[in-house]
């Protein structure tokens, strides 16, 4: 990593413009979080409604820093054998079978049981060495030679117990494996850790305490326009403006699921595909199912469709 990345994360503006060149438009808060994460060597817990680019942030950071991105997707029932390490039982079994014959040769000359055991013990714990260890994402991230970005996605989906498992790696960048000892990340090659959460449940205080907390809200109109422009470069300025104004208004309404940025982008792509230059009521009605994912919501919005569209078109 060294000087190169130090340079890329020099200050907030540099980070912002670098993100922009990778088509990720971010607010100052987000850039600040990345800056702090790198310089304070602390994990970042990202919260916010779905579809605002939480996971994307981690991926883009990895891309910006030319690091590999190791992702751990959390789900209910995720445990240490899937997240940290596992012993390669198969290999261990196979080796014992193969070595059975050799064992006789090794033990030649040993008299009695005590001597044999002594001789065996002098070989150490061959079967519980790194050779037989299958590293899972967390361990992999620590052992990575060139540092990396570790993305622990949707922590809120995992069990409470798993959260506690994360504490060691989050605070000290190390993991304890009973049979081997402690595996720690190299100094100044510590991974940059992002955790994302959709707030389906409260994350424990112990975990929160160890992280920087970044809340990504829905973006302001101006920022959203920039995002759409970066992601859908073909879109006309006029359509972009109307589209964002429409979406922003929807977010004010009482809906089951309000459209997120990803929906805005999808919608923009749809409209481009339909060769439309500006919004009108009919067009919106036909494409409404791109941005609204519940029939209930579609009905609510349909009732006021023409009014909202009118406002969005007029809005300068």
């Amino acid at each position: 990593m060294g000087i190169k990345n130090e340079d890329r994360l020099k200050d907030i503006d540099t980070i912002k413009s670098r993100f922009e060149s990778l088509n990720y438009i971010c607010s100052r808060e987000i850039a600040t979080a990345v800056y702090l994460a790198y310089h304070l060597e602390k994990p970042v817990l990202i919260e916010g409604p779905p579809g605002v680019g939480k996971t994307e942030l981690a991926k883009t950071t990895a891309k910006m820093l030319d690091l590999s991105c190791i992702r751990l997707q959390c789900y209910e029932g995720l445990d240490e054998s899937k997240a940290i390490y596992e012993w390669k039982y198969g290999k261990q079994l196979l080796y014992t079978q193969v070595l059975k014959e050799t064992l006789g040769e090794v033990l030649q000359g040993a008299k009695g049981l005590t001597e044999s055991v002594k001789k065996l013990q002098s070989f150490g714990d061959i079967f519980f060495s790194e050779e037989f260890l299958e590293p899972r994402p967390l361990l992999k991230a620590l052992k990575e030679k060139e540092s990396c970005v570790l993305l622990i996605d949707e922590v809120d989906k995992s069990d409470h117990e798993f959260e506690s498992l994360l504490l060691e790696i989050l605070s000290d960048f190390q993991l304890s494996i009973p049979e081997i000892g402690t595996v720690a990340a190299r100094k100044d090659k510590k991974p940059i850790v992002f955790l994302t959460s959709n707030n389906t449940r409260e994350i424990s205080d112990a975990l929160k305490r160890r992280c920087l907390h970044l809340y990504i809200p829905f973006p302001e109109a101006e920022l959203e326009r920039q995002i759409v422009e970066a992601r859908v470069p073909d879109i006309s300025k006029q359509l972009n403006k109307q589209l964002v104004a429409f979406i922003q208004e929807l977010r004010e309404m009482d809906l089951k699921k309000v459209p997120a940025i990803s929906e805005t982008i999808d919608w923009a792509k749809t409209l481009i595909l339909l060769h439309s230059e500006s919004l009108d009521t009919e067009l919106v009605r036909e494409t409404l199912n791109v941005i609204l994912k519940f029939q209930e919501d579609v009905e609510t919005v349909s009732a006021e469709l023409s009014a909202i569209t009118g406002r969005a078109i007029k809005d300068k």
Binding site: R28, E29, T32, L36, L45, E47, R209, H213
Partner: peptide
């Protein structure tokens, strides 16, 4: 120490990330 005290807004967002953990 890292941020310094020159940029008020910067300091504010930074501290808010470290100290406050819910919306």
């Amino acid at each position: 120490q890292l941020i310094g005290l020159k940029d008020r807004e910067f300091l504010k967002t930074s501290l808010s990330m470290v100290l406050s953990k819910t919306p």
